[in-house]
Structures are given as C-alpha cells and as structure tokens.
C-alpha cells in the first residue's frame, strides 16, 4: 500500500539519535574526559541545562519529603513537552521503544508468525492508572524510590554506562530481556499498561495540543490504523485523540485516505 505521509522515518531517526546520545555519552565521558553532556534519560545534562525525568524527580521529592530546586527545575522541560505534545518521550525518544521496534522488525524479517495483537485485554488498559499511584505508594512505604532502579530507559542507559566504565553489566538489566520476551505474547504490553512513567506523561498530556484527529467523512473504515497502532487503539473510532495515544504517527502514515492527521489546537 502506498503510504500517504512519512512520519515514521523521522520518528525512527529521532529514536536512533536518542540512543546514539546515550551510547556516545559514556564513551565521551570515559575516554575523552569531556563532561559537557552527562547522564541518560533519568537525568541528562547539556552543559548547565539539566533535565530530570518527571517520575524519577517526583519519586525523589515524595520519598525524601524534600524539594531540591535543581531537581524540580529539571522536571519543567519534560513536563512541558508532555503537556503540549503528549507521551512523545515514549514514542520518539525512549530507547526501549527503539529496542521493541527492532524486535518488531526482526519478527517481520524472520517472516514467522503474525505479530501478537496489541488489542489483547488480558491486562486492561486502565491498569496504567493503577501502576502510577501503586508505584509511588510502595516507594513511599519502602522509603526508597523504585522506578529509579527499574525504569527501562534508565536501565538501558545504565547498562551502556556500565559496559563502558566497568566492562560489566548490572544484573537488573535482565528486566530488559523480560520486557523483550513479553513482546512475544503481547505488543507493547509494558508501555501500554504497566509503565508508571508512561502513565505520568499520559496524564500530563491529557489536554495536549498536538493530537491525531480523525476526519470521519474521509475514513473508509479499512481498519488499517487499528492493526498498526502499537498501543492497540482504534484510531478509526477517534481513539487516537484519547489520553492513551502517544502520538507516534504510525496510524497517520498508514491511513490510505488521509482521514487521520496531526492537528495542533
């Protein structure tokens, strides 16, 4: 099928660039002793501009019961991004997404079975709204933030750093293998239903400006978008405008009648 727009190459380029940053970072820090850019997607610094992942920052504030201004200020830019554009961190930056895109691609290359559906209701979609408070509550009970240890994008950054700095891997990286294995059963199950950071970003982007808008009169109801959507949404019923959409644009790309478009409101 002829695609009518091409957002996907840009998104893959953004994902590759985002991964390249956290691959190059430890190498430059370790071998060149240049610390202009530090960290990965838990906290990353570009010169004196510091970013802090909103959930990690929130956990730190809630569990430590203290607000530290640099952490708070570092959260502003990511939250603004999510407020305006929605969960674009997940679909355009998160290295786990790139990893799972590669898994998708491998599966297509190996030509094997049909990819598992993202529409499975084994875990209902609203689980996303449970994991965020649950994760925060458990962290506060334990007195130690949990997502900072197990955040998949954080783990990828940490393992890359460990590889460069210590020629070793941290054992918690096994979680990444588990997430890849999960992909054999259900598409993006973790991102869709279980990621507390995704939940926080989705919540922040609930009234986002950038949305995929359905032009109902142009829709030919082919259902291609629903098959493409990695989150198992049905854009032909305007679900791409819902709070769950992460604005990856795959449905916009695959729509043969251009009924789905990104709109800035």
């Amino acid at each position: 099928m002829k695609s009518t727009s091409s957002i996907r190459p840009w998104r893959l380029a953004a994902l590759a660039l985002a991964l390249a940053v956290i691959v190059a970072n430890p190498l430059i820090n370790f071998f060149c002793q240049n610390h202009f850019v530090q960290g990965w997607y838990q906290s990353i610094a570009v010169g004196e501009l510091w970013f802090v992942s909103p959930l990690e920052g929130l956990e730190s504030i809630l569990v430590a019961k203290a607000v530290y201004a640099p952490a708070f200020i570092g959260m502003i830019a990511p939250l603004t991004l999510a407020f305006l554009l929605g969960r674009v961190f997940c679909s355009w930056i998160c290295p786990l997404t790139l990893l799972l895109e590669i898994v998708d691609w491998l599966r297509r290359r190996l030509g094997g079975k049909k990819r598992p559906s993202a529409h499975s209701e084994i875990v209902p979609r609203w689980t996303l709204w449970l994991v965020l408070p649950a994760e925060l509550l458990i962290s506060m009970v334990l007195g130690a933030p949990l997502f900072v240890i197990f955040s998949p994008p954080g783990l990828i950054g940490r393992e890359l750093m460990m590889l460069v700095f210590f020629r070793a891997l941290a054992m918690e990286g096994l979680l990444l293998l588990a997430l890849i294995a999960l992909e054999l059963f259900s598409r993006r199950l973790f991102c869709r239903c279980l990621c507390p950071l995704g939940a926080l970003l989705a919540l922040t982007g609930g009234k986002r400006r950038l949305r995929v808008q359905l032009q109902a009169d142009a829709c030919v109801d082919c259902g291609r978008c629903a098959k493409t959507c990695p989150l198992g949404l049905r854009p032909q019923t305007d679900q791409a405008a819902s709070i769950y959409c992460w604005n990856c644009g795959d449905c916009v790309d695959c729509c043969p009648s251009q009924a789905l478009r990104f709109r800035w409101r």
Partner: peptide
C-alpha cells in the same frame, strides 16, 4: 530516598 541513580 533522594538519589535517582542517574550516574552523573
């Protein structure tokens, strides 16, 4: 409680 394990 505070450290976000960012490794910087």
């Amino acid at each position: 409680a505070r450290c976000i394990r960012c490794g910087r």
